[in-house]
Design a protein around this nucleic acid. Structure first.
Length: 465
RNA sequence: GCCCCCAUCGUCUAGCGGUCUAGGACGACGCCUUCUCAAGGCGUAGAUCGCCGGUCCGAAUCCGGCUGGGGGUACCA
């Protein structure tokens, strides 16, 4: 039995966990769980220029919020610690030098300006922009001397000029690239940090990752990784590329056109279970079911069944699904969630919440929608959607004042009788009353709401108008 | 430009050569229910399966080309 170890390798270069990363995290987690394996987080913070303060912590927090737990990571350690690439620098240098000794990599002293000129002329001649191999000709000994003299350098992968590199993708099948089209990728940058390409390969090997599951934007750099595995003489893990998520206009999901941070969804009041369920349906379909749990997914999931087409992230369907989860949730839990989420709900209002919830539960699709639906239970309305028709309202006031038992049935009878007597439509009286009590024209069932508010508060509100 | 990936209702998808006059879900629309809005129930519209060839008795399903979309082409990840 092979040990299954999966991982995500986020870069702390954004505000929070990108929804696309959350998506691949889910799949990696499910694959690991399904095989009783481990799911690992490794932070790839090798681009010092794009580091964002606090990003790593927020990524970890969002993963936790989503309920995608990891067994090893920068926060909890593990047998292959450290799990942050900036803490592993000597390892990459060592392996890159080993490659250089074997002739599978070489030192390059080209300046940024020479590279730029080179690219410009290649572009002008309609040639693929890639490194021309100038420094490949420098003998190793000479290169070492130049380095000893303090010259700035990078280490480049020495890609063979002939042949093709092929790999088997678990969800897409065989994919090949001609070697002559593969660039001599920089492995170690002049600041001594590895590039992604060296970093992932070395760490995935050392950390015994068995399945690399990542976004399809990596497909074209995979041959470089394959070559590295071959040069090191390491066994290649299984590999699979999931589709990128897209904006409604089909371009790669971007923050300009769509909320992309997990925190965006958290602050709107989406539930982690709904998020995971929705992400799962984008990756894969389960027997025609729309609603299923992560456990069900773990039981049924097969990597080979993952969608190959890049899905549009549909906010509307997510909202619908979130509503389904809210309606399904048990009351105490929902009350707890709303109270924690909505700052306008007093912490000690559990009894009141128990009465309110049945009236609003099926009307809210996110926790964030509770406030506009139920705020009037906590505070008297100060603004009104439109002017109230006072004559109509008076009918309601008179009717309610004379109601003996404060139940919605009794109130309804009184309201309708009074309306009939005045020869006006009960509907309209109800609407003016709703407006007076809640400030709005839409909301939870009126009479049931009045029951919760109580006769005293109801009549007092009306008397103030 | 070059390389690679992908292609079924607006969106997510089912479909693995005959059972498809293409099924489901979201969304849209209509009706029922109704004090508003939802939820729920019922129903309607919506896909000549991107196009063209080929294989086959038979193709959404297999093959090729084209077109379209996407991704990549950095000392970013």
């Amino acid at each position: 039995m092979i040990k299954v170890r999966t991982r995500i390798a986020p870069s702390p270069t954004g505000q929070d966990l990108h929804i696309g990363n959350a998506y691949t995290a889910l799949i990696n987690y499910v694959v690991a769980k399904k095989n009783n394996g481990q799911f690992i987080i490794r932070v790839e913070d090798t681009d010092r220029t794009r580091l964002v303060e606090g990003s790593e912590q927020r990524i970890l927090k969002s993963l936790e919020w989503l309920g995608i737990p990891h067994q090893e990571g920068p926060d909890i350690g593990g047998p292959f610690a450290p799990y942050r690439q900036s803490d592993r620098l000597p390892i990459y240098i060592k392996y890159a030098e080993e490659l250089a000794e074997k002739g599978h990599a070489y030192y390059c002293f080209c300046t940024a300006s020479r590279l730029e000129e080179m690219r410009k002329s290649q572009e002008a001649n309609h040639q693929p922009p890639m490194y021309d191999g100038l420094c490949k000709k420098i003998p190793l000994e000479e290169a070492k001397k130049r380095i000893a003299n303090g010259e700035k350098y990078v280490i480049r992968l020495n890609v063979p000029e002939e042949g093709t590199t092929t790999f088997h993708d678990l969800i897409r099948g065989d994919i090949s690239f001609e070697n002559k089209l593969i660039d001599d990728q920089v492995l170690i940058k002049s600041d001594g940090y590895p590039t992604y390409h060296l970093g992932v390969v070395v760490d995935d090997h050392i950390m015994e990752i068995s399945h690399i599951i990542r976004g399809e934007e990596w497909i074209s750099s995979t041959p470089k990784h394959i070559l590295l595995y071959q040069f090191f003489g390491w066994e290649m893990p299984q590999i699979a590329h999931v589709s990128v998520l897209r904006n409604p206009d089909k371009s790669k999901l971007s923050k300009r056109k769509n909320p992309v941070w997990v925190s965006d969804y958290r602050v709107k009041g989406y539930l982690p279970e709904a998020m995971k369920n929705y992400m799962a349906t984008m990756a894969w379909s389960y027997d025609g079911k729309e609603l299923f749990s992560v456990d069900e997914m773990i039981a049924q999931f097969e990597l080979k069944d993952v969608q190959t087409t890049a899905p549009v992230f549909d906010q509307e369907k997510l909202r619908w699904m979130n509503g389904e989860y809210i309606r399904k949730m048990n009351e105490d839990e929902l009350i707890e969630k709303i109270t924690a989420f909505d700052a306008t709900v007093p912490k000690d209002s559990k009894d009141l919440m128990k009465k309110i919830l049945p009236l609003v539960k099926e009307r809210m699709k996110t926790l964030g929608e509770f406030e506009s639906l139920a705020d009037f239970f906590f505070v008297r309305p100060v603004a009104f959607e439109r002017d109230i028709k006072k004559e109509m309202l008076q009918i309601a006031i008179d009717a309610l004042s004379s109601v003996a038992s404060w139940t919605h049935d009794a109130m309804e009878k009184a309201m309708r009788n009074a309306s009939d007597k005045k020869d006006v439509k009960a509907k309209e009286v109800f609407m003016e009353l709703r407006l007076a009590i809640t400030g709005k024209t839409v909301g939870p069932p009126l009479l049931e709401s009045l029951e919760v508010l109580g006769k005293e508060e109801t009549l007092e509100r009306l008397s103030l108008l």
